[in-house]
Nucleic acid binder design. Structure first.
Lengths: 202, 202, 202, 202
DNA sequence: CATGAATGAGCCTTCATTCAT
DNA sequence: AATGAATGAAGGCTCATTCAT
């Protein structure tokens, strides 16, 4: 059963890869410092230093994978959250809700994406910026649609979209590092209304 | 005249300290990457490597000072900008304008604060967060005042203030790294109105 | 038929061994650098990395075998080339011709022997020296015979033989790395006459 | 006396550099294996690992210096040995004598140049080849002159020069690794005459 | 027997910090 | 006080060798 054997091995390899990525994420989200050395990651993943290089070409490749994974997770959730809506504002609100829920649920993911990533190194930082830019770009698409439909006033949608995403980054980051507000419902409502009003919804 | 002598020495020390901090800032704003070694900072400041340790306990202490200085600069500018206003919204708007102008004028300062610093190390990040928190706190004071005066609707001012600051961080960062929008007036207006509307100004 | 079975197995083992040695030779003669890792050799031989260690105790043992094989090949060719001559000078000249032809024909072999091998490690170097010493010893036998027959003047035949072999090593190595001279006939003649005259042929 | 201070320091630095090069040479000539790691060199030189990099940009630079130093030493000695002669053969003979004497006197130098260098790595090997090529080139100049003066027969002087140098490399290497012959005078005479006759001196 | 993933010692290099001058 | 050479821990990565399957 060569077939089975190969499959099993591939499966195991994927498992190892996941394990390494998980270890990297853990170290990123736990330690105060972003001291992610290959050695520490390997140790955390329960493998030898050299083994790491069987699964990733180099450190940068790992970083790519970690980011890619988080990003995909985020976009998938947003996409799924918006699926049931057709109205522009509803879609936008759904996106916001998904973001908040996802990040609050998976604090470690949020911590990595918002807090630690930009610290590791420049390349990393660049990649993180790419994600944010992507989110801004997607938001802008929504805003342009709303503007075209005259549902929001004339404005630089690039700026609005950037501000929009900025509110989330800042608020969620605060919640993560300082803890959530006691009246979560009000907080939640405040953030969403801040943005809705900010856009100038008619 | 021991007193004078001591004073002179202290003054001289302060001068050196400033010189080192200035060197650190310069290097931070010039180099693409966060390659700020003590050696390069010392060289830029025109002192020997070892001399650095006569003025700063370690690298982290330097970081503290650099941030402190930037923060003070920012707050001073804001305070000065608000001085002539009494109305809550005017003060808030003045703050926003000062922020934008200061950052756009001193791109290198902005670059340090928003782009480079968070990459250096985690301790740094924590300190950067402190500045942002302070700005949020100050904004919240304004919002609480406005809320009390029933000039904005009921809301979690902590969240609003956070979102408020977040829009600036994100927008200015984008402008710095991607370049300013062609229609700067519209962009500028969009950002300020986004926040004013977002607060729910009556 | 235990006997047959054992023989078959041994035969198979020898085949594998040859295959590995061949792979090692190929890699040595192809790659610019001495990047011959066990992994790459095994891959080239079509076996798994670990399998290598079923046939060779370690890397050094492989080196032994490779050299041994090349040496045998060289000596066999020389022996065959000399077989038809009885006169001392003729035998010597035949040896020279065989050397040149063999090396020029099998550049990859020459490249291994002269260029790459000495780089791999010190143990290797010792072994390579052994081959050269052997060639020198054989040459000396010829020279002693010629000296006894008063066909060449009194001399330290050990030194002459060493010099003799040295000219070949150097010249062939140059041809291999820099390319052959345009007038190969003259070059060829020059080398052989240099040595013949050098010996002091009467 | 800034002048003195600077001079002293420079002197000291040069001393350190020499010390490191000496350590590298020692390790090269002593150990069976050419295990020259920066760590071992530093240890031998009595310095910390990092200190090495204050004197040499990297490992390759050290290698360059070591080779350069040996080569310069050799060429200087040859030049000096030839200075008093005008006749082509005399110059050639003087060169040969210098080579032999120098190498036999400084066995460790010879050991490095002839035995170990080619083993360390490819770059190294290339550089060693450069030296040999240079020697061959210089020899060829002499031979071309002799040929022009009709003092030696028509021949490919490139090949002769190569063979010429090859005899020295081989003979000296043998003497170094196997010990000198008992009758050194005869050996010496044999080598020189071998080459002189080989050239076809009229 | 064969496999190839796993191992870990070792390599080169950087840089915050110390210390003799 | 000032200097800058010296230090050595740590980092990313390679590869000969082992071992569970």
């Amino acid at each position: 059963m060569v077939y089975n054997k190969t499959e099993k091995i591939l499966e195991k390899q994927q498992l190892r890869k996941k394990k390494i990525i998980k270890a990297a994420k853990e170290i990123l989200s736990e330690k105060e410092m972003g001291n992610i050395s290959i050695k520490s990651i390997a140790k955390r993943a329960g493998i030898a230093t050299g083994t790491f290089y069987l699964y990733f070409a180099d450190k940068e490749t790992l970083v790519d994978m970690v980011i890619q994974e988080i990003y995909t997770e985020l976009l998938d959730a947003i996409k799924q959250g918006r699926a049931q809506y057709t109205n522009g504002f509803d879609k936008l609100q759904a996106s916001m809700e998904v973001c908040i829920h996802l990040f609050m649920k998976e604090r470690h993911l949020a911590k990595i994406l918002l807090e630690h990533f930009p610290q590791i190194n420049a390349a990393f930082s660049t990649k993180y910026a790419d994600i944010e830019n992507d989110l801004i770009r997607l938001t802008k698409l929504d805003l342009d649609e709303l503007k075209e439909q005259k549902l929001i006033p004339e404005q630089d949608t690039q700026v609005s979209a950037t501000a929009f995403v900025g509110t989330f980054r800042e608020v969620i980051l605060t919640w993560i590092s300082k803890g959530q507000p006691s009246d979560m419902d009000l907080a939640y409502k405040t953030l969403i209304e801040f943005n809705m009003r900010g856009l100038g919804r008619y």
